[in-house]
């Protein structure tokens, strides 16, 4: 039996997907601005953040109403609690993209100290993690969500490598310090983006099968 409530849950999914795609666009544009040294893209990132912030509030409000009016149980309840948490992660994704954009603004004021290799690679993996975690959400695909979780270590490794490499630049030439620090922060922002994708993937698993795998605790 198709319920009116199912329509509302679909609407909620649709809102999260829309917000997710806005956040993804923000990340994409902020990194592209850095790699292509294109300042114009940065203002687009800031504009998109307003929409993401608006949806953040809108989705929480919708979830609150569904909880109050539908008193959901079982899978419906898990879906809405997961939506509330994913909503927060999506908003943070937007914040990370804004942080990258701000660092990029500062970076574009100075010449590059080296061609960017690891950061674009880190960015590609992190963006794919975000994309796949949202895909897993739409399809309630536990296997894909679990796959996202396995990729977090790669991101951590690249982030560490970026840090070590830029450290050697800073030690050999003090004039590179401002640029290197900005890049270290960008790399850290990407690492945080991957963490948010991981959170989303964990919430998808909870939503789909009711298993809480966070922090490797086995409460249930």
């Amino acid at each position: 039996m198709e319920r009116k409530f199912d329509e509302e849950l679909k609407e909620l999914s649709g809102m999260l997907i829309k917000m997710g795609s806005l956040a993804q666009t923000m990340i994409h544009k902020s990194i592209k601005a850095l790699v292509d040294r294109d300042k114009v893209l940065l203002s687009e990132v800031y504009q998109l953040e307003e929409s993401v912030n608006y949806m953040h509030v809108e989705i929480d409000d919708f979830c609150l109403k569904l909880l109050a009016l539908r008193q959901p149980q079982a899978g419906d309840l898990r879906m809405i609690t997961a939506a509330i948490k994913i909503n927060t992660d999506l908003e943070r994704l937007g914040d990370q993209a804004v942080n990258i954009a701000q660092r990029t603004e500062s970076l574009l004021e100075r010449p590059a100290i080296k061609p960017l290799v690891d950061i674009p690679r880190e960015s590609t993996i992190a963006q794919k993690m975000v994309n796949d975690s949202l895909d897993a959400f739409i399809k309630k695909d536990v296997t894909l969500a679990e796959d996202v979780l396995t990729r977090d270590d790669t991101i951590d490794d690249i982030n560490n490598q970026v840090f070590r490499e830029l450290l050697t630049y800073m030690m050999s030439d003090h004039s590179t310090i401002p640029t290197a620090i900005d890049l270290i922060f960008v790399s850290k922002n990407l690492e945080r983006i991957a963490d948010h994708a991981t959170n989303i993937a964990e919430d998808v698993i909870f939503m789909a099968i009711g298993k809480d795998i966070r922090h490797h605790l086995s409460i249930k």
């Binding site: 149980q73 079982a74 899978g75 309840l77 898990r78 009711g210 249930k220």
Partner: peptide, 11 residues
């Protein structure tokens, strides 16, 4: 039962 029922019919 109300967060994660084991049987589809219960859900």
């Amino acid at each position: 039962m109300f967060t994660n029922p084991g049987d589809k019919r219960t859900e």
